[in-house]
Amino acid sequence: MAHRVVVLALDMVVGYDMTIPPQILREATGKDGEPLYDVRICGLDRSPVRVGSGFSMVPDHDASILAEADTVIVPGTRVAGPRLHGVLPREIGEALATVPSHARVMSICTGAFVLGAAGILDGRPATTHWAHADEFRALYPNVLLNENVLFVDDGDVLTSAGLGAGVDLCLHLVRRDHGTEVANRAARYCVVPPWREGGQSQYIDRHVPEPGSEGTAPTRAWALRRLHMPLDLAMMAEHARMSVRTFSRRFRAETGMSPGNWLTRQRVEHARHLLETSDLPVEVVAERAGLGTGASLRQHMRAALGVSPLAYRKTFRHS
């Protein structure tokens, strides 16, 4: 049976957040096209739920469906108790109390305020939209908040930063449950990046590329096809027909990172893909990803993800 996901839409819900789980998770399918998730949206009752962007929606289900959930997702909301006073309204508390003990609980954006008010995040790492971090800390000092990440996976409780980071979290969920190929297919259909590092800063102040500039995108595409080969800044600048200084400046403006850091990240991502989708020895994975030796791959994997290549493969490899 498909994994049952219930999205709990509370008054003044963030409409974008609410629609992310059904859009992303319903595109996660098995080899024969079978749906892997059964996603449903509920309110506390069947009454219209106000959406913060100026309209209301009528959910198909009331909160009784929470008792059947394998995963519960609380999207962003402006509901007053959790957002302003650090208290959980009785009806929300009663609804959350029906969630099965085995179920995962997730939040998108300011949905973390609801989990905080429910005590679910006490003593746990979590994140929310960076713009609301100070007020979150004031209301929920027992939560280990980190507003500088896109999402936090703490096993049975997961939280994401604002808006688009909900896409990252849902794709991470698919990747965690069913592997990279399924997640990549869902991302490709939704025309979104299949993976952004969970440690990437939520907010990067990037300059708009200069008018008339062709940018560094062609060179980035060229480099991605040659990750197994020696590449350095000078070679990339030469391909882009720019000076090293100009290339570095434009590259950072367009990607938010230096060419060297970007290249290392892409190589680690390629290594992850190979670990998930093949039985290649670690030394061969390192070579094909352009990281040289197994020792180098282990060093980069631990720095980026905190795990060894073999531990990563054991976690994410799905037959």
Rank of each mutant, 00 (worst) to 15 (best):
Y37H: 09
I20N: 03
V14E: 14
G30D: 08
D17V: 11
V13K: 03
P22A: 11
D32L: 12
Y37T: 09
D32C: 02
K31A: 15
A28K: 02
D32H: 11
Y16N: 04
D32V: 05
P21M: 11
T29R: 15
E27Y: 03
R40E: 12
R26N: 12
Y16A: 13
L44A: 07
D38K: 04
E34D: 11
P35Y: 03
C42Y: 04
E34A: 15
V14D: 13
P21G: 09
R40A: 14
L36R: 15
Q23V: 12
C42L: 07
I41R: 01
Q23R: 12
I24M: 14
Y16C: 06
G15Q: 12
T29F: 00
P35N: 07
V39H: 02
D32P: 00
L25F: 04
G30H: 05
G30V: 10
A28E: 01
I24H: 01
T29L: 13
E27T: 09
Q23Y: 04
G30F: 05
E34V: 07
L44F: 06
T19I: 13
V13F: 02
C42W: 04
K31Q: 13
C42R: 05
G43M: 07
G43C: 07
V39G: 02
I20F: 03
E27D: 05
G15R: 06
L36H: 05
C42V: 11
K31P: 05
Q23S: 13
P21S: 11
I20W: 02
E34Y: 02
L36P: 01
Q23H: 12
L25Q: 04
G15A: 15
R26D: 00
K31R: 15
T29V: 15
V39L: 06
P22W: 10
T29M: 08
T19F: 09
R40V: 14
G30K: 10
I24F: 03
L36Q: 05
P21L: 11
I20G: 01
G15P: 00
P22C: 11
K31L: 14
D38M: 05
R40K: 15
D32R: 15
V14H: 08
G33A: 10
T29S: 06
R26A: 05
D38P: 00
P21W: 08
T29G: 00
V13R: 04
D17H: 10
G43K: 08
I20M: 08
G43T: 10
C42K: 06
V13T: 14
Q23E: 14
D38F: 02
G33C: 08
G15E: 12
